[in-house]
Amino acid sequence: MHPIRKKRLTIVLFLLVGLGIAVGLSTYALRQNINLFYDPSQISAGEAPVDVRIRAGGMVEEGSVLRDPDSLMVEFKVTDFNASVPVQYTGILPDLFAEGQGVVAMGRLNESGRFVADQVLAKHDENYMPPEVADALEKASKGRHAASGSAETVSY
């Protein structure tokens, strides 16, 4: 290769590597700000600020959804299978909201550790399947549940 081209190529490579390191370090330093939400483990460890508008995200715990019959208020627990946080929300939930589904809630954490949400967004996962397959899977896993009695971990 021509020496001038070699020199130019070295400069270009240096530029790319330098930029990569700079951007890598700054995004690493800002990682908490880039995270869209706190997960329940962080909240129960006290890492999330109290009474500041934040987002909390995780899975809606099975069997934890309580709807108030007279109003739109709903209470549920958000879990990451290590810790769970009680969430209170008044309003219309997105269609995909269901027990065992991922959600991201925006609101404030009060002193008693309850998360008062003013917006709840559904987060879905990367798995797609036809309804018949989903039904079959559910039946199969229920069968296994009854047999072994062990809790199955779900990824989200």
């Binding site: 990682r31 995200g57 987060k123 397959v133």
Partner: peptide
């Protein structure tokens, strides 16, 4: 790398896609 609302990739180079 971060917590996002957008779901992770369905297609990965090393694994089977998580859709039929």
């Amino acid at each position: 790398w971060w917590n996002t609302l957008h779901q992770p990739s369905t297609f990965k180079l090393t694994e089977k896609p998580s859709m039929p």
